[in-house]
Structures are given as C-alpha cells and as structure tokens.
C-alpha cells in the first residue's frame, strides 16, 4: 500500500513539475512550488514508514513549516515587492 501511495505521489510530483515549467502565469508557478513542497513532505513521510523509520514524520512536519513560510514569503514579496518595512504611502507592508 505504501509503495502504491508513493508511486501515486511521484506521478503527482511529475504533473506539478510540468505545470511549474509550462505554467502561463506566475500564480500557477507559485501554486506549483507550494504543491511540490507538500508532495515532497508526503513522500518523505511515506518513505519513513516504508523503511520502518517513523521518526521521518517529524522531519516531514518541519518541512511543512518551512514550505508554508516560504510560500507566505513569496506571496508577500509579490504583493509588496519587498519584505521589510512598510512603504511610505501605504502601511500594509508589515502584515
């Protein structure tokens, strides 16, 4: 069952990769990289159970955190074109 699940995840990773390469708009690509991170951590978790090392689950959790923070940072960068202090005119930069 784990092998079938990991095969399905690898297929999904390939599809996401195709979308990231072809993707016409930037939103496709941001979504693709986010999904790819999710698939990678799922694959790590399944590989942990497949090789009978369930502590890989904790590693997958940390991966999820990193992935989330990276996606938020990219989105924020695209909204405000910087990460640091707010602009002079709008005060939304520190959200």
């Amino acid at each position: 069952m784990f092998i079938a699940a990991s095969a399905a995840i690898i297929v999904a990773m390939a599809l996401t990769l195709i979308r990231a390469i072809l993707g016409p708009t930037i939103y496709d690509r941001i979504l693709a990289v986010n999904l790819f991170g999710t698939k990678a951590l799922l694959l790590i978790a399944i590989m942990g159970f497949l090789t009978e090392r369930p502590e890989f689950l904790d590693i997958a959790l940390v991966y999820a955190l990193i992935n989330f923070i990276a996606t938020i940072a990219i989105m924020k960068f695209f909204r405000f074109s910087h990460l640091g202090h707010p602009h002079e005119e709008d005060n939304l930069g520190d959200l």
Partner: peptide, 27 residues
C-alpha cells in the same frame, strides 16, 4: 521568474534525496 521557482523545486528535490540518504541535517 519561472527559473527562480524551478530552482526552488530543484532544492526541494535535492533535500528529499538527502533525506533518503539519511543525511537529515543537510536536507
């Protein structure tokens, strides 16, 4: 821009490879 995104994906793939080689800290 897509090159930047793809390099991020490349890093994620490399990190998964490091995890499979049990070099978790490097990953």
């Amino acid at each position: 821009f897509s090159v930047v995104i793809l390099s991020g994906i490349f890093s994620l793939l490399a990190a998964s490879l490091y995890v499979l080689l049990t070099a978790v800290d490097v990953a």
